[in-house]
Structures are given as structure tokens and as C-alpha cells.
């Protein structure tokens, strides 16, 4: 099988007062060197899916397979070396870095993980350079950096582990608008340089369009539309995708209000449309 990651019929449920099905029979694949974007609005299950991919969430049913091996739950035990090539970048840059350890040392932990797996060693400075930060930052602490710089360090640390699957859960939404697009673009380039697959989760279709080869649109735990990014952006088929794209305000200075859906969460958004899936 050529797929790097295969998610098949994944179901994730949360049991509280009621059972909430966050992810409802979702299947997707990522090939090496491919950027797959997962978009959708808050609560659609995209973050749960991302967490399940790295093993931070226990599936109710279905499977997450990485290089033909099921991804184990990230329990108390030490993670096996074969799975340290799956790395993750989190949404909140403030809690992504250990506040009491220098930046360089944290990147070194990533390097160590790569070396333990038999990969090539490297220096923390190289990774800082690659994410566009000055190498002198190795001796800094997280609280001395801005949010954007922290997120870059978190990306550098993940990449230093030489992953071949990088999962990024809303990695840019906490950043200033002016650096969002450039960080997203940087992630694409670095992942592709390393020959890794990138699962990029975002609610921002405008940015996803620029960096993803394929896009998956989720609504209420289900995939409503998926396929080549340009097709989805230029010619959305599913009513939800259409509403999502037309609701994005265009920064063109023309004072045009984006189209608002007639009702909150109309029924038609929940339709299953086979023709909207796996569009090529």
C-alpha cells in the first residue's frame, strides 16, 4: 500500500450526560509528500480526528493505520520509536513549549527522537533557521518570545524529529493575521522538503486553498465534500461547502457583505452527496 496514513470508518464519541458523536465514520488517506487539509467550523470534529490520528484520542470504532501498523493510544508507556515519526503542532502556541526549558534544548529533544529512530542528527540552530528565526534564540525561554515566534519554535521542534507525518491542528489561528499565510506556506514547504505528509487542520478555507493538494470539508462529524483543493474552492458541490465559501468576506475594499445562510444550520447542510466526495 502506498498510503502513509489511512483512517477508515473512524468513530469518536464522548460520553457525558449525552453521547456526542464527534467523528462519524470518517475515512481518509494521506500519501507521502501530500498536503491534506481538513476544514470545518468549530465542533465539526476535525480536532478530534487530528488527535485520534496521533493516538491522543481513543476511537469508538474504526482504525487509524500508519505505515500498515495501527497507531497505538498515547498512554502512559513510552511511545515506540516507529511512531515518533508522527509529530504534531498544536493550536495554542502558549502551551506548546515548556516554560522552564530553553528553546534550543526543546528542539534537541526532537533531534534525539530522530536519532533514536536511526535518522540523521542535526543542530537546533539549523531548525531555527529553517523556520525563519535567528539562531541566537536557542538560549531563550518561551516567555521571551512572541506568539508567532513560539509557534515557529513548536514547528521547528516537530520537524527536528524528522517526521514523515506531520499533523497540525489549527496551527495558525492563534497568530496575527499578517503571519498566518506565511507560516502556513512555510509549513507546506518544510513538510514537502522532508518528503513528509501533512495533515493541516484549519477553519480558514482561504489559506487552506493555497497550501493543500486535497481538501476535506467536515460538518457535524461527517465528511461532506472532499477532493482536489482547486475544484472544491472554485466549484463547490455540497450546499455546506458553498455556504462556507460564500460566507468568507473578500478583503477587496468594495464593501460587499458576504452571503449569510438564511437560517442557522439548515437541514440541507447535513445531506450526504456521493458526488461531492473524492472529487478529482
Amino acid at each position: 500500500m502506498s498510503e502513509l496514513l489511512e483512517v477508515s470508518d473512524l468513530v469518536i464519541e464522548y460520553h457525558g450526560a449525552t453521547v456526542v458523536r464527534a467523528v462519524d465514520e470518517v475515512s481518509l488517506t494521506i500519501a507521502p509528500g501530500e498536503v491534506l487539509a481538513l476544514v470545518g467550523e468549530s465542533g465539526c470534529g476535525k480536532s478530534s480526528l487530528a488527535r485520534a490520528v496521533v493516538g491522543m484520542e481513543k476511537p469508538r470504532s474504526g482504525a487509524v493505520t500508519y505505515r500498515d501498523a495501527e497507531v497505538p493510544l498515547l498512554g502512559v508507556r513510552r511511545r515506540k520509536a516507529q511512531f515518533t515519526s508522527i509529530q504534531m503542532v498544536f493550536q495554542d502556541p502558549n502551551s506548546s513549549l515548556n516554560p522552564r526549558i530553553r528553546v534550543g534544548q526543546q528542539i534537541s529533544e526532537g533531534i534525539r527522537a530522530a536519532v533514536e529512530r536511526g535518522a540523521e542528527g542535526s543542530q537546533p540552530e539549523e531548525w531555527l533557521e529553517r523556520v525563519g528565526l535567528p539562531t541566537t534564540m536557542v538560549s531563550r525561554y518561551a516567555h521571551e518570545l512572541s506568539g508567532g515566534q513560539r509557534q515557529r519554535v513548536a514547528i521547528a521542534r516537530a520537524l527536528a524529529a524528522r517526521p514523515d507525518l506531520l499533523v497540525a491542528d489549527e496551527p495558525i489561528s492563534a497568530l496575527d493575521a499578517s503571519s498566518q499565510a506565511s507560516v502556513a506556506d512555510m509549513m507546506r514547504k518544510l513538510a514537502l522538503d522532508a518528503g513528509a505528509g501533512l495533515l493541516f487542520i484549519s477553519h480558514d478555507l482561504a489559506i487552506v486553498r493555497l497550501i493543500a493538494d486535497r481538501t476535506v470539508v467536515m460538518y457535524r462529524g461527517k465528511i461532506v465534500e472532499s477532493g482536489v483543493s482547486d475544484l472544491i474552492w472554485n466549484d463547490p458541490v455540497h450546499p455546506y461547502t458553498r455556504a462556507l465559501i460564500s460566507a468568507i468576506p473578500e478583503p477587496d475594499g468594495k464593501g460587499i457583505l458576504p452571503a449569510a445562510p438564511a437560517a442557522e444550520a439548515p437541514e440541507e447542510w447535513r445531506l450526504t452527496m456521493p458526488e461531492a466526495l473524492n472529487r478529482v
Binding site: V76, M88, D92, E109, A113, A161
Partner: peptide, 15 residues
């Protein structure tokens, strides 16, 4: 559940 603890465990830190 802090992200940096998770990040460390994804890198194969022992307990």
C-alpha cells in the same frame, strides 16, 4: 494535558 507534555510524549519520552 498541556501541549508541551503531549509533544514530549509524541517524541518518545519515557514516563
Amino acid at each position: 494535558t498541556q501541549n508541551y507534555v503531549m509533544a514530549g510524549r509524541l517524541m518518545g519520552f519515557s514516563p
